[in-house]
Amino acid sequence: MVSAPVLLFGLLALVVVLAVSLWVLRPLGRPRVVAAGVVVLCAGTFALYLLIGTPEALRAPVAMAEPASLEEAVTQLAAELERNPEQPEGWALLARSRATLGDAAGARDAYVRALEYAPDEPDLLVDAAEARALAHPQRLFDEQSMAWLQRARQVRPDHARAGWFIGVAQRQAGQAAEAAATWEALLPGVDEATARSLRVQIDAARADAGLPPLGAPAAVASGEGLKVKVVLDPGFAARARIEGEAVVFVLARVPGGPPMPVAVERHRARDLPLEVVLDDRDSPMPTQKLSALEEVEVLARISAAGSANRGEGDIESAPVQVRLPSADTVELVIGAPPP
């Protein structure tokens, strides 16, 4: 049976992590989705701690008395981690808790301890970089912070928060054009609401660099864009289980070229079937526009992880090659058996 101190500790941890995460992730996602994800993550972390950590230490009256406040709970957690330090999730929780209490330096140091035991965990690397910047007198991302962010992007190239903070660091360093390019690369992997907010930051950086704003580029030469309809194969739909947060990417790319799309839209998989129009507004990079191409390869991909990069378990439609401009609607069928 789980004792009262353990339950109280878990509830305090949940409140701390939820509050901090909502504040940290507000530029890159929807608050309700973030909140739901954080609740699940925190609950899972607490359950994992009970399974593989040292819950006996939490239950023992001498080792940990019932905390009377959040500050006392944080102090008890720090003491437990000093006795049993090989718990990166515990150090991360301590870091977030200290950040909530206004102890920026303590949060920074706790993340350093977490990275000792999980040096290649992307989320930890990004959290540690942010904490280090918040602890800096001028709130700057220094050389060590940038190294952590770059490592996170090496491990997970589509890590949106790492890309966001890299752009922030570049702006701080006076590299406005580089920051704009970094943020432009994030556009294919975020939803439309986030993309609109991100474009504001991109245009500000481009203005500082003496570059024109992204604005609203012209559509494909036909004047209507490339119309695409995406459906699920009936047989696949009958047996498949599409999770609530799965997303579908509809993209166009250069046939036989690099996998980077020249136009891409991100939608919820539960909204299938759907119809979209790909045009220059969906181009992730201003240097290559859909309207400048004579032929593209169009496909759709369901990603359970929500990643723009293809991952294990992703389901794709068969690619369709299209000559541009085209007034026809391209139909893509996800999950269809091979011909």
Rank of each mutant, 00 (worst) to 15 (best):
G29H: 08
R30W: 04
P31G: 04
R32V: 05
R32P: 05
A35Y: 10
G37N: 05
G37E: 00
V38T: 15
V38S: 09
V38W: 08
V38G: 00
V40C: 09
V40I: 12
L41M: 08
L41A: 09
G44I: 09
F46Q: 09
F46T: 03
A47Q: 13
L48Q: 07
Y49L: 12
Y49P: 04
L50D: 03
L50Q: 05
L50H: 06
L51C: 02
I52L: 15
I52D: 10
I52S: 13
G53S: 07
P55L: 01
E56C: 03
A57P: 07
A57K: 09
L58G: 00
R59V: 03
A60M: 01
A60K: 08
P61M: 06
P61F: 09
V62D: 10
A63S: 11
A63N: 05
A63P: 11
A63L: 13
A63D: 10
A63I: 02
M64D: 01
P67G: 07
A68N: 12
S69E: 02
S69Q: 03
S69D: 02
L70M: 07
E71L: 13
E72G: 00
A73P: 07
V74I: 14
T75D: 15
Q76K: 12
A78P: 13
A79Y: 15
A79V: 10
E80N: 09
E80T: 03
E82N: 06
R83G: 02
R83Y: 13
R83T: 04
Q87R: 15
Q87K: 10
P88E: 00
E89C: 02
G90A: 08
W91Y: 10
L93C: 03
L94S: 02
A95I: 01
R96I: 00
R96W: 14
S97K: 14
S97Q: 13
D103N: 14
A104S: 04
A105Y: 02
A107E: 09
A107S: 15
R108D: 12
D109L: 04
D109W: 01
Y111Q: 02
V112Y: 04
A114R: 06
A114H: 07
L115N: 07
L115D: 06
L115Q: 09
E116C: 05
Y117K: 01
Y117A: 01
A118V: 04
E121I: 01
P122E: 02
D123V: 01
D123P: 05
V126C: 04
A128K: 10
A128Q: 11
A129F: 14
A133S: 14
L134T: 04
L134A: 08
L134Q: 10
P137W: 08
P137K: 09
Q138D: 15
Q138T: 08
Q138G: 03
F141L: 08
D142T: 01
D142E: 12
Q144P: 13
Q144K: 06
Q144M: 07
Q144D: 13
S145Y: 07
S145E: 02
S145F: 06
S145L: 02
S145C: 10
M146C: 14
A147E: 13
A147H: 12
A147P: 10
W148I: 00
W148C: 00
W148E: 00
L149Q: 07
L149G: 06
Q150G: 01
Q150Y: 10
A152M: 15
Q154M: 03
V155P: 14
P157H: 14
D158Y: 12
A160P: 08
R161N: 04
R161V: 01
A162I: 08
A162R: 14
A162S: 08
G163F: 11
G163Q: 13
G163R: 15
W164K: 06
F165P: 00
F165W: 12
I166V: 15
